[in-house]
Design a protein around this nucleic acid. Sequence first.
DNA 1: TGGTTGTATGCCTTGACAAGAATATGCCTA
DNA 2: TAGGCATATTCTTGTCAAGGCATACAACCA
Lengths: 103, 103
Amino acid sequence: MPVDAFAVLAEPARRRILDELRDADRSVGELVAALTISQPTVSKHLKVLRDAGFVSSRTAAQQRIYHVEPAQFAALDEWLAPYRLLWTKHLDKLARHLDTMER
Amino acid sequence: MPVDAFAVLAEPARRRILDELRDADRSVGELVAALTISQPTVSKHLKVLRDAGFVSSRTAAQQRIYHVEPAQFAALDEWLAPYRLLWTKHLDKLARHLDTMER
DNA sequence: TGGTTGTATGCCTTGACAAGAATATGCCTA
DNA sequence: TAGGCATATTCTTGTCAAGGCATACAACCA
């Protein structure tokens, strides 16, 4: 069953994890230290993120190093795209309005 | 209390409502007809969307006409932006790779 | 091999939230 | 003003997921 990307990102803790991984790959322990969340909780969130394809992990001795899979964000962007159109259109209108005002 | 945009959009029904409103403004009744959701449920979702600033409504006689507020999507896009960077970088790398292969 | 570190998993409780049914509210028309 | 239509709200119930705790598993080290 396909996982709902929005539902996955709805959890603030998961977004914090992603934000952390955006800078650099991290082991689970590093994530636990950086955020202030228990290790089991972090591991569970990582599982959700992994299942949804937002991150992947490699094994380095006893540690698992996680890193972001940027491709997965495309789905999100795809949904957002038509709205971005609307809203840049809106910005254009605003710009024209301001332009009109200053004449 | 600020509403979490991701949490709001996590509900598929709410995204369907937004997709419907993207084409044109709609009354609650039209939304109920278009989607196949009970009227109270639609009203409740609309309330959530309104509180989060994703839509606004005007009163037309007994009807309430809803329309999308595109500006609200900016927050979403803002969060997504750094990841988009990562992933276009990734696409670049892929392109270079393909380029290399065809030589 | 036994102990230790790093990570994952299972169970349980609790809280959040969605949907249904019933009802309330607002605005119109006769 | 009564009645009817469009929408909102309340209450209740069921579902699901998050987090705590304990524990299992895996890889390293002495």
